[in-house]
Design a protein around this nucleic acid. Sequence first.
DNA 1: GGATCAACTATACGGTTGTTCAACAAAGAG
DNA 2: CTCTTTGTTGAACAACCGTATAGTTGATCC
Lengths: 204, 204
Amino acid sequence: MSEADLPPPAARFTRMSAPERRAELVAAALACMARGGIQDFTVDRICAKAGVSRGLITHHFGSMNGLLAAVYGAMYSAATEAARAPAPGESRLSVLLDAFFAPAVFNRSALTVWLTLWGQIAVNAELRAAHRAHYARYLDDVALAINEVAAANGRVVDPEALARTTICLVDGLGIQHCVDPASMPARRAKAACRRLLVPQIGRF
Amino acid sequence: MSEADLPPPAARFTRMSAPERRAELVAAALACMARGGIQDFTVDRICAKAGVSRGLITHHFGSMNGLLAAVYGAMYSAATEAARAPAPGESRLSVLLDAFFAPAVFNRSALTVWLTLWGQIAVNAELRAAHRAHYARYLDDVALAINEVAAANGRVVDPEALARTTICLVDGLGIQHCVDPASMPARRAKAACRRLLVPQIGRF
DNA sequence: GGATCAACTATACGGTTGTTCAACAAAGAG
DNA sequence: CTCTTTGTTGAACAACCGTATAGTTGATCC
């Protein structure tokens, strides 16, 4: 009976493995950032969202900068994992374009996070270095896919330069969708990319 | 003699007309933002940079949000004023492209400010409304210039759609230059724009 | 030369920031 | 069972945030 009279167990806190908790904190940080940009990327808001005490961010990430880097990594992973394996007869470039404008990637929340991260990259040397490393692999992937199509169509192009331009266009289309979604739906954005690429490398 | 013994006049402050002071505060805010993004867009830093007391921002702009709007307006003006009148026989589109990638516009400092402003636009409804209004006129200008070339070359295109895509590409190229200037110099950026446009509307 | 007005300073205010730290709780090892 | 480890709390900290406000300075007008 004495046990029954005790206040509800109400586990004062739930224990998690470090990787689980980190993932949860990153998710909470993403939610905050999607809603309010860098202004909502604060210890208080993120911990409240995650339902944990304020000390945990420092414990798991060392600092807010560490969490920011983790958030960037998570966004990058989500973007690259959106690309499935190409079906037989389907070009890898086509798959990439689908991935760029998939609903899970090309939506206002996610793009607000990207815009916020870019703003930080421009100002934070550490984050910028991490970005460049990721970007190099990203560029290679796109260049390879472009080269594949160009070769199949017997076109001669500079795959890297065209890949860089394509990525810039994708980024710019994302900004536009973020600021005014109706003016740049995913369908239109993808079509714009094709209109850039097809004259250079042929149909795909 | 008593006058000579006084501490140097050292005008405790210099007086300006309201528009002059506002311009100076906007310039200081731009400098801060270019260096440290939204984190350096603070009363303390801006007023220190401008060499005035902390009260002046509220006095002249009502709030930091007011100053932010003024900064946005200043950036927009600077961008549009970079376009000179077309020389005889020169297309307006060519002039626009020159303006987009002029050194005063296409440089890391200015683009850091833009990136920061976009991050705020994505999150600040007031600023977003102002941006859309500006953007509409901007879009019209580009569409008109595109249509001019297309008509001269006997091409049929959707000028507005192509203008929107072009602007997105310009923005994306700007991000890239901001994050890694060497990888996207103005020359290359301009060439990328032409590579998008020429297949659609012909040479200009 | 005194009144008026706007530009400006300087301080104070409550609230929020990121980080530190000692104490605590739960799980696993021996 | 005890000991160790580690995820977690919660409070404390100094620093900084934006805004409000009372008072000072300098130019302008009559």
